[in-house]
């Protein structure tokens, strides 16, 4: 009993003298602070819009289109790697989903083949980086053009309407509207996004795999010496991002009911910006899923917020840039001091 008491005392002493809770979570606290400040500005700028439910509903509809990819990209960035090809995988997987659905009218088959495209796309990236040894930024520039180019060749620039999908029982599972009484309606895809955030978050910090991702990103040589299968970990991360891109395209297509040859384009920078604003280090070894989650919320709220406070849409990119530059500068300073 005494030993228990004394070890409890030791623990108390350790928490006092060791890194404090605030310090250990400084990145998460910084980004949550940023979100709070932004929303204070939006509320002051346009009280009516930001106190009505409609704007939040429109956020919940569109956030999952890139948010799930941002969560998955956190793994790749924590490795110290980068992937530029996921918007093209998004496009190719979306094309497979749409054409298979139009041809067979089978949602499950279309969905499964679409995810397969994600697996294969991620696998190819992973193999190019680990087995061939191409730096990921170069390898994924290649596959980015490759898969987008393939979509262009296959579609000849033509879109695919899939309006009939609204009659499919699976449709509601992905983008159905769940009424919670009054004006409050939750789009199903947002629940998927929340589930993905919890899953990816727990997997990251509380599972062996996430531990290996952190260790490999921190020091690849050490990871090898400790018997971690470095190549397998890296390939798995690229596959996770590929599958997430394919999965996200299903939400977008079910919402928009139309496939464009450009589907997925434009999500590259917003997705990566969400990861970097969130505080995940581009040097690898440090990452936060909470940070990415809040980063996604910030990126998604910026454009409507800028318009709501009375600036023109032309300001959007400027404010993105301002926010990204300031936040990564703050993180870099924190890392230096830490």
């Amino acid at each position: 009993m005494t030993s228990v008491a004394s070890s409890a005392k030791d623990q108390a002493a350790e928490t006092q003298h060791g890194p404090s809770f605030l310090w250990r979570n400084r990145f998460q606290i910084a980004i949550i602070g940023m979100l709070v400040v932004l929303y204070a500005i939006f509320l002051i700028g346009d009280w009516r819009t930001y106190t009505s439910f409609d704007i939040y509903r429109s956020f919940m509809i569109s956030i999952p289109f890139f948010g799930i990819m941002a969560l998955a990209a956190t793994y790749v960035v924590t490795l110290g790697e980068i992937d530029l090809s996921f918007p093209s995988i998004y496009g190719l997987a979306g094309w497979v989903f749409s054409s298979v659905y139009v041809a067979t009218a089978s949602f499950p088959l279309a969905f499964l083949l679409c995810l397969m495209v994600g697996v294969v796309g991620g696998l190819i990236n992973g193999l190019l980086v680990t087995k061939i040894g191409i730096p990921s930024i170069v390898a994924t520039i290649g596959t980015m053009f490759l898969w987008r180019g393939l979509v262009n060749v296959l579609t000849q620039g033509q879109g695919i309407p899939i309006a009939q999908i609204t009659n499919d029982p699976w449709h509601a599972l992905f983008v159905g509207q769940i009424p919670l009484g009054g004006p409050v309606v939750i789009p199903a895809q947002f629940l998927w996004f929340l589930a993905a955030a919890i899953f990816f978050g727990v997997f990251f910090k509380r599972h062996r795999f996430g531990g290996h991702v952190l260790f490999v990103g921190d020091d690849e040589q050490s990871a090898r010496m400790m018997g971690i299968h470095v190549d397998r970990v890296k390939i798995a991360c690229f596959v996770i991002l590929g599958v997430s891109a394919a999965f996200s395209s299903v939400f977008l297509l079910n919402q928009m009911l139309f496939f464009w040859a450009t589907t997925g384009d434009g999500y590259l920078l917003t997705t990566l910006a969400a990861v970097f604003i969130g505080g995940t280090s581009v040097f690898g070894g440090k990452g936060t899923m909470i940070g990415t989650f809040v980063g996604v919320l910030i990126i998604a709220s910026l454009e409507p917020g800028i318009i709501a406070i009375g600036l023109s849409g032309f300001w959007t990119q400027f404010v993105y840039g301002l926010l990204i530059t300031i936040s990564v500068a703050i993180y870099a300073l924190m890392l230096k001091r830490g």
């Binding site: 062996r208 531990g211 952190l214 260790f215 921190d218 020091d219 050490s222 990871a223 440090k286």
Partner: peptide
């Protein structure tokens, strides 16, 4: 063979983590 930015409890068990079920730490 240590990783600088990881906590001691991660470094000691790197590559042979103590897990409960399905690989959860």
């Amino acid at each position: 063979a240590l990783a600088d930015q990881q906590e001691l409890w991660r470094n000691i068990f790197a590559g042979r983590e103590l897990t409960r079920f399905l690989g959860f730490l």
